[in-house]
Design a protein around this nucleic acid. Structure first.
Length: 427
DNA sequence: TCTGGGGTCCTAGGACCC
DNA sequence: TCTGGGGTCCTAGGACCC
């Protein structure tokens, strides 16, 4: 249900071209140049500097189609998630100093909720956020303010597009006419929650801008598109329907998967890759202290190769007891592989899903006695060692160390902030 | 040669129960 | 001439997000 408290203002603080900005913070030579960061496997562009956007590079464009732009000065970096995650944590903690209610929404975005700030000049307050993050963390951010999360998102977008606003756009406390003037200039596709499918369907109803959507009849919208889109309409009109989530709810599923550096056909290599993924997924599971009841294993061929026989499938293995220990999970993953593997295909990607998650504390006991528990402690012990000594210091023995499936990372920057061996050096 | 990875929510429809 | 109705749970698929 929508809540009716007044005097609430939401803000969205969002890092500009976040991954590129993280790289620039440690490598000033990247400043002022077209830079992109590539996805895993150096697959496609997932972050672009303004200069790169100006060259016409779009989000998700594959690297092999961009490579020729290197001649025109384009710099492409492999992704360095250890660096970005660490920079994100720093940025979020600085932002949190400015508001008691903070939601970390994604690696580069944070919602804030100001309540009881009526006497404050929030626009100025948010300029201070921007300045301090820039100074202390080295990341440029923009801030949008509005009566709802959806409006704050939209304001943030306006701030990014209009540099003359100084990085902060405040749509709260504005007259309705003024607000709709802004909404009229935003494409409906750029509204939070409206993707490409909905954009098409809305266009057939002559709903083209955020203002059109705000004026649409919420009941009609609910009937045709469901409750989520109805909420978006109400939020555009200033009625909060999405609350701040100050602490993230535990995950309901955990996925670990990767595309391979090249096609893989032998089962042994797949098993080796899957062991790595299931180990990673298990770490995440134990981190949130959950158990899972089902382990899924999926394989897929390369859908971009029409001449290659295509196959994708997933097997779900139900565990006799909900578990979190690495041995049980690895064994289930192996069984999953046995179930989906077909030798006649060449695979591009594989992954593991942990499903049916529940807090470890409320795990159901078996009717016929306790589930084995000794292994759990061992898994946690291994997590502890890996945490201190570096990932994969200790892992379950699954021979094949050649890793023909390993990820491509042609141009990765050092782990400046998270590895003592690679820390930045000031001369 | 080369096209990411990890999530959420909602809905419809089938199975099953009384 | 006649074939209930309502509720829950589960799953698959679609749509969205970063």
């Amino acid at each position: 249900m929508p809540s009716m408290r007044s005097d609430r203002v939401f803000a969205l603080v969002d890092g500009n071209n976040f991954y590129v900005s993280c790289e620039r913070a440690f490598n000033p030579r990247l400043e002022g140049r077209p830079v992109i960061v590539l996805s895993n496997n150096d697959g496609c562009a997932v972050a672009r500097s303004q200069e790169a956007k100006d060259m016409g590079i779009v989000m998700g464009e594959p690297w092999f189609r961009l490579r020729h732009l290197e001649r025109r000065g384009l710099i492409a970096l492999s992704s360095n998630y250890a660096l970005y995650a660490d920079m994100s944590a720093r940025m979020m903690s600085v932002i949190g100093q400015f508001c008691p209610r903070q939601e970390v929404y994604s690696i580069d975005e944070s919602f804030l909720e100001f309540e009881g700030f009526a006497r404050w000049n929030l626009t100025e307050h948010c300029r201070d956020i921007r300045d301090r993050v820039r100074k202390w963390v080295g990341i440029p951010v923009c801030v949008g303010l509005g009566a709802t999360k959806t409006l704050a998102k939209l304001a943030n977008r306006i701030a990014k597009k209009a540099p003359e606003m100084g990085g902060v756009c405040n749509l709260s406390g504005m007259s309705e006419a003024g607000l709709f003037e802004y909404l009229g200039r935003v494409d409906v596709r750029d509204v939070w929650g409206i993707g490409s499918r909905l954009t098409e369907k809305l266009a057939s109803m002559r709903i083209l801008t955020a203002a059109d959507l705000a004026r649409a009849n919420p009941d009609l919208i609910r009937m045709r598109f469901g409750v989520q889109v109805e909420r978006t309409v109400r939020e555009l009109n200033g009625l909060p329907c999405f609350d701040l989530e100050t602490e993230p709810p535990p995950k309901q599923q955990i996925v670990s998967s990767r595309s391979f550096g090249r096609l893989v056909e032998d089962k042994r290599s797949l098993a080796d890759a899957l062991h790595t993924y299931v180990a990673r997924a298990g770490e995440k599971l134990r981190q949130q202290d959950s158990v899972c009841s089902t382990v899924g294993v999926f394989l897929m061929t390369n859908r971009f190769m029409p001449d290659e026989p295509q196959y994708h499938s997933m097997a779900s293995i139900s565990l006799p007891f909900p578990a979190q220990d690495g041995f049980t999970l690895a064994k289930a993953a192996q069984r999953g592989l046995d179930a989906v593997y077909k030798p006649e295909f060449r695979y591009q990607k594989a992954g593991v899903m942990l499903m049916g998650l529940a807090p470890a504390a409320q795990r159901q006991e078996s009717l016929f006695g306790d589930a084995p528990s000794g292994r759990q402690d061992l898994s946690k012990l291994l997590d502890g060692i890996n945490d201190r000594m570096g990932r994969d210091s200790v892992r379950l023995a699954v021979a094949n160390q050649s890793r023909p499936w390993a990820m491509k990372r042609g141009n990765v920057s050092p782990a400046y902030t998270s590895s003592w061996k690679q820390v930045a050096i000031v001369r």
